[in-house]
Simulated assay, not measured.
Amino acid sequence: MRESARAEDLLDWYDRHARVLPWRVGPAARRERVRPDPYRVWLSEIMLQQTTVAAVKAYFEKFTQRWPTVVDLANAEDADVMAAWAGLGYYARARNLLKCARVVRDDFGGVFPDTHEALIGLPGVGRYTAAAVAAIAFDRAEVVVDGNVERVMARLYDEHTPLPGAKGVLTEYAAGLTPEARPGDYAQAVMDLGATICTPKRPACGLCPWRRSCAAWEAGTAAVLPKKAPKKVKPVRFGIAYLARRIDGAVLLETRPDSGLLGGMLGWPGSDWIEGEPVESPPIRAEWKTLPGEARHTFTHFHLRLMVKTALVPMDRQPVRGVFVEKDAFSPSDLPTVMRKAFDLARG
């Protein structure tokens, strides 16, 4: 007979197998009343949106070393934060990161609010992030549902409704299991279970503390859950990136508008990205050379293929947009990934 899932069983497993993460206060430390830093919890949750733990670790360490408190981050220069974020993707998160830090500094005295209702009013903080910070940082009994939790719940209850339509019912399942005791540890335990045991492919059901409670394990359907609606085919957009270098080595860069993709980031001047032949829009008069190959990148909603053009320009030539950055002040690592790909094509 299948047993009912219990939060206590998962917490017992978590006490032994919790992942060690740079932003986490583990269960043993929490028992010794070591409290998580809400700033570190919030920062990690923003960074982890649509990004893997492996990719986030180095960025998190860099940010917390350079800006150890939310007030330090709020006082930072926008360009410095955007450059430190370069390569992590989904750049609206970085803009909202600064907005949120400044609201916490200015409206809350540099102290994060401790309820879901107050947290969700902060810039860039949605329902999931508010629930995660409230639970993990403040031990509020909030229902925390990310992709890992959705997968665990779909299998635990053998739910075959495809995502994203199943989100509501999966959240209801998660709410029914969320305990009043140790809700912060529990929220992290379910995420750890999904990340290490109840994985998308080849789940390790034999090691799962909820195996005897799992309807999908009993039915033999775990490997095909959660079901997902068919993905739409992504369109392809085309554009041109102009890489101009002055004879003294300075490079021509522009800061992209705050709104839209790569908003607020440094990049090469270029054309609009469209589903057709891009319109030439060179940022400076020069003899432009088209490089063989393309810089290709995939965003959430489309694939991008950039033609890369290069030019060497004299010292007295002025651009119609963008500014020249001195050679010693330019670092390719400050560029978002797609712009680094264009740079690598030009350099190679």
Rank of each mutant, 00 (worst) to 15 (best):
A74M: 04
P68Q: 13
V71H: 11
F330P: 02
V133W: 02
V236A: 09
V152I: 08
E61F: 06
V41H: 04
R66Q: 09
C198T: 06
A132R: 07
F60V: 07
S259G: 13
Y242N: 00
F238Q: 11
S213H: 13
T310A: 11
A346C: 01
M339L: 12
Y14M: 08
Q50H: 06
R35T: 15
C214K: 14
Y157K: 12
R105C: 05
A92E: 07
A137D: 06
E150M: 13
T51H: 08
P22N: 05
P203N: 06
A55P: 08
H160W: 12
F299I: 15
G206I: 02
V71S: 07
R317L: 04
G263F: 03
W288V: 07
A241L: 09
S213K: 08
D158H: 12
P68N: 09
P226I: 02
W23F: 12
S281F: 11
T199W: 01
D258C: 07
G206W: 01
D328G: 15
Y14K: 01
G126S: 01
A54L: 06
T178C: 08
L21M: 08
T52N: 10
E172Y: 09
V279C: 13
L156P: 04
H301K: 10
T129R: 08
G264L: 00
F63A: 07
E218R: 09
T255V: 09
P123F: 02
I240D: 01
M47K: 13
A244W: 02
R212L: 09
W273K: 08
R40Y: 08
P269I: 06
T171F: 11
A295F: 05
A174V: 10
L335R: 10
D106P: 13
D78F: 07
D78T: 13
T300F: 00
L225K: 12
P113S: 03
R296C: 05
S281M: 10
A286S: 00
K167G: 12
M265C: 09
R105V: 00
A83R: 13
K62H: 14
